[in-house]
Amino acid sequence: MNRINRLFADKGSKRILSIYYTAGYPTLESTVDIAETLENAGVDFLEIGFPYSDPVADGPVIQHSSEAALRNGMSLGVLFEQLKDLRRRVNIPVLLMGYVNPVLQYGVESFCKSCKAVGVDGVIVPDLPMYEYEERYRSVFEENGLSNIFLVTPQTSEERIRKIDDLSTGFIYLLSSSATTGKNLSVSENTEAYFSRIRAMQLKNPVAIGFGISGHHAFTRATDHADGAIVGSAFVKLLGETDYSRKIPQFIRQLKG
């Protein structure tokens, strides 16, 4: 059991809130400070993005933060250096999220070992194919105690969701719709039906809903149907403002309501 499993196992009636942000943005050194501030503000777990030059699943806000982070000098090597300090300052579960190419260049095995060494609990790499994970990388993820998180969209077939449920060891990341990041969730009859359909499947893994969750209303709707919800672009936008650090606690309070 890693920190993610414990969080979901012990959650009770709590609505779990996760925040995504990009490492090295707005400044190279802001990564761990933001993590600490978020934990103190009551966030339940974190997804720290490592930037890539060609983030095809992201909308303009996260594209911008990724470009800025790269300009600031962020890389996986720099990130793992920064995270050496992580577990002295932060107790909540932390996942790393990013695209597969930087991981391949760092080396998948080295990446998993570095994650374990700094106390990262899980990884979300949306463009790592399930097939490659199963055939080549699953054992090294598991040896290092890492949960590999898979995405599910409204178009994902039931058969594939079952397969994902079998392979998952942390939670399932349910996309509110098939979309790039940063589009506002409009809860329609279709999304309600989709969320209900997933719930009715009684998956073994907990479910967190992400993409397009920007405010209290969407957070509540999402967590009516799932164990947790994830906020990304709306928070990254805040990081672009002056004095963002002081505004974080209020932002989180408003989200949770």
Partner: peptide, 21 residues
């Protein structure tokens, strides 16, 4: 180039040591 992933396939790719295109 070195082996890497861009636009959905693994191939040869001009990239930095850190895997940026």
């Amino acid at each position: 180039g070195r082996e890497g992933v861009l636009h959905g396939s693994r191939s040869l790719l001009m990239q930095t040591d850190d895997g940026q295109v």
